[in-house]
Design a protein around this nucleic acid. Structure first.
Lengths: 355, 355
DNA sequence: TCAAAAACCGTGAACGTTCACGAAACGTAT
DNA sequence: ATACGTTTCGTGAACGTTCACGGTTTTTGA
């Protein structure tokens, strides 16, 4: 049962001073004697007085709150980002308002409006499907905003991006260095920005190595375990010449792993598999999955710190930070059959942080 | 870049009416003619006016916000609960303020204070380590509160509980029915409420089957994969007679699975393993993990609906809902060596929903 | 010892709403 | 036409703070 709320005036009355004096000690500002300060602090403690952030916000026009909008908080990627955001935000005295969009475009705008009504000091938006112009318009309502994994042309909005092109490149290069030349690409949804970027990196590594890009070695599926399983089946049955599979993310890679196990293919001996993201699951399947690590919590932290700098006018409105993923080589990738060990080009050391 | 905020008075002026009239159409209340209503609505749309939830909260003493405090949002269990909370909250017009405690007791109180300062209409707290009296005290600041997976004596606080005792019982019973009699228990932290409950269920099933409870078959570890691995090693080396392992949760079970793989023990032939929670990972490891399914999103939804009922004074302050978990039998459990198939007592059908 | 400067404290206004009134305008029945 | 009920709208206060002042009292310096 809740008790009556104690206000600043209650405290003031008890202390026999004006509310202004209490305000001063609450925000520990000068111009109040040490004795009355102590007295007021004592009363505050006794009464359990807490200043109303609401009233405070009304006059200061700051809420010390940031909005975080994600497609789905139960998705491990976004919950990790959320963790990072929360960590940094909390350390700076900010709270976070969490909104899920469920990939729904109208709901995206809706939550942005809600956040606006709530006077959040800024927003961090992840993975919005919204088209550029509308997103731009909706974001204009905020003092500060940062995008995660998306960029916006026109008036630029700060963003933290993952270098997906590099990731796709590193994955492919790794396989090439192991001696693979017939490398399939189990891509995510064709509409996905990061998907197309990773595919670009795949192409670049291929042409760089002088390997012909075969369109039939690429297929699009949704990034889930079950679809990864299906994709691997389709791909490997249609193209038995493949010795390696690059997957859009770890979930698909796990699916591919499952298909290989079910169809009697050995990994990595018969077929090498590499994923993307480095989720916890990647270390737990067998064989442990080689993958491209993206530091998700870090992404959240960086996004939050960019946002807070913006809020404090310390930052350019147009910053853009791109985070470089790196290879994590585990047991699901190896040289293809028929390639002797010493013929393999070793990856350069900076690509092999300890997993 | 943010534009100047447009207020209710701006709209009123443009429409040539008083702010009160605008307020009426915003909250679509009666007492305004259809013509001026239309006119005002048009202006609102043109100016992009959004009422200040802050100012509104100040006078109504309601924020349409609920606080959600969890140990760690990146933990799949809590992010699923969060998803459920958010779903239901959003459908009722509530936003959620997310707070992580990081299992830190002082920070728990801290976030509760923050939430209080922000006038949230209620709080949902998950997995707090706080001792009863202090928690009680902190919760008294809120109009409404519901606990997840914890109960509080004294003045009762509504709670949604998972019947951990039942879960522990079901897991154990399942193994007994398969013919196991030497069943180890890899428990979570000794301080964990759900941990002790599950252990109670373990004991109950054992005595019910007339099996002597051996204290040395129980060990406490933290509920992580690596600790599960360590726990399995300690347990199995000290007690080679064990044919089955019940784990506090799926993460520990996966750890146990890993230890078994590393030490050359076959699962389920040499040792049966069962987990708790039914996280996605459970379906993906090999062998797929038998476990006790906990409907996490559902837990969140129920908690949110209880809270909102409380906020609207529709509910008893002392409700308590306990959710029954159920067995999901996969491939990590089977009869111990030496027990013929037809000697096995079949579990009753309602214990075997399709996985 | 007296003015000037600190140190300390209080008052009025404002932030953007909602709520409880009251007032004006309009029609309707007598 | 008079009175009265509706409909429509506006006014004053309040919510709990902070901010910009202004006013006392006390201390300081020569």
């Amino acid at each position: 049962m809740s008790r009556r709320r104690v206000t600043i005036s209650d405290v003031a009355e008890l202390a026999g001073v004006s509310y202004q004096t209490v305000s001063r000690v609450v925000n520990n500002k000068p111009d109040v004697s040490e004795s009355t300060r102590k007295r007021i602090q004592k009363i505050i403690k006794e009464t359990g007085y807490r200043p109303s952030q609401i009233a405070r916000s009304l006059v200061t026009a700051r809420t010390a709150t940031i909005g975080l909008v994600v497609p789905d908080i139960s998705n491990p990627f976004f919950s990790a980002v959320a963790r990072g955001v929360e960590q940094l935000a909390y350390s700076q005295g900010y709270s976070i308002l969490l909104c899920n969009t469920g990939e729904d475009v109208t709901r995206e705008l809706d939550v942005l409006h809600t956040l606006h009504e709530r006077y959040v000091d800024g927003v961090i938006v992840c993975g919005l499907r919204q088209e550029d112009a509308l997103l731009q318009e909706a974001l204009a309502n905020f003092k500060a905003a940062v995008l995660v994994n998306r960029r916006l042309q026109g008036e630029p909005v700060p963003a933290v991006l993952i270098d997906d092109e590099l990731g796709g490149y590193l994955n492919t290069q790794h396989l090439i260095q192991l001696g693979h030349t017939a490398i399939g690409f189990l891509a995510g949804p064709a509409a996905s920005y990061s998907g197309t970027q990773r595919r670009l990196g795949y192409s670049r590594a291929l042409v760089e190595a002088g390997i012909l890009l075969e369109e039939k070695w690429i297929t699009n599926f949704t990034p889930t375990v079950s679809d990864g399983e299906a994709a691997a089946e389709v791909m490997l049955q249609a193209n038995p010449e493949l010795t390696a599979l690059i997957c859009h993310n770890d979930l698909m890679a796990v699916g591919a792993l499952r298909y290989c196990a079910a169809s009697g293919r050995r990994v990595p001996e018969d077929i090498a598999i590499i994923g993307f993201d480095d989720i916890m699951l990647a270390t737990l399947v067998s064989p442990p999955l080689s993958t491209c690590h993206v530091p998700r919590v870090e992404v959240g932290r960086i996004a939050a710190s960019m946002l807070i700098e913006q809020i404090n006018d310390k930052a350019d409105w147009s910053d853009e930070i791109v985070i470089q993923p790196h290879l994590v080589i585990r047991a699901s990738t190896a040289a293809p059959a028929g390639v002797s060990d010493d013929a393999i080009m070793q990856p350069t050391p900076d690509h092999i942080p300890l997993g």
